[in-house]
Amino acid sequence: MATLQLKNLSMHYSAKDKALTDVTIDVQAGEIVGLIGPSGAGKSTLIRCINRLNNPTNGLVLFKDQDLTKLGGQSLRKARRKIAMIFQEYALIERLTVMENVLSGRLGYVPFWRSLLRKYPEQDIQQAYALLDRVGLLEHADKRVDALSGGQRQRVGIARALAQDPELLLIDEPTAALDPRTARQVMRLISEICSERGLPAIINIHDVNLAKMFVKRIIGLQQGVVVFDGKPQQLDDSVLTLIYGEEDWNQTEQQELETLREIA
């Protein structure tokens, strides 16, 4: 059974500004999907339409057979807590501690007074420590987030997402703000955790090589329309041109230098 089904999903800011048009995708249980496409193709809009940070204009978002586009208030919040999100610039609360940030993943489950007084249930705290240990940040639990490095922050973001006990992960450019090595480490951690838990995920990523390394299915978006849906091996030059536009995909640094010399 598909965990998530998007049916003819569209989001139009105006008649001319169409962020998404007729997107239909199924995500199976345990499947990790990489979403690639040029800037402005609608990758972020697509995943923000799933947990309704953006409101789609048309179409259905079926999550475990429930249509999220029809929900509001309490029932929307209940659905949201099962869909965790990891952000490009971490989107942690900088002035709070690592522990508070991880526990904020439990906000959908605890009453307001508990979250206000930071009196979380014992099993939530235990789980938060276990998650911090899993992402290798156990000894940083009481530090303020703004004292951490980029890679460490993104791991706090991952721990916060997992604290939600999610059944779906939405990941928006998790490595865009990281150096190449940290980016690979973070991607490896995410894919390990997903396979440990059999967790389905949609990852927006603009680095095609990184996507090929860690993802088994790739969807290409171009101006809000799905133009490719297949295995990473099928991503050849013609497909890349379809998604990103004309460019010599095999050109190496050496060739680039030669071209420059010719011009000069």
């Binding site: 209940k78 965790a84 959908g108 916060r160």
Partner: peptide
């Protein structure tokens, strides 16, 4: 605003 989005996405009231 992204910090607000992040907390909203957890299902917070």
């Amino acid at each position: 605003a992204t910090q607000v989005s992040a907390i909203t996405a957890t299902g917070a009231s």
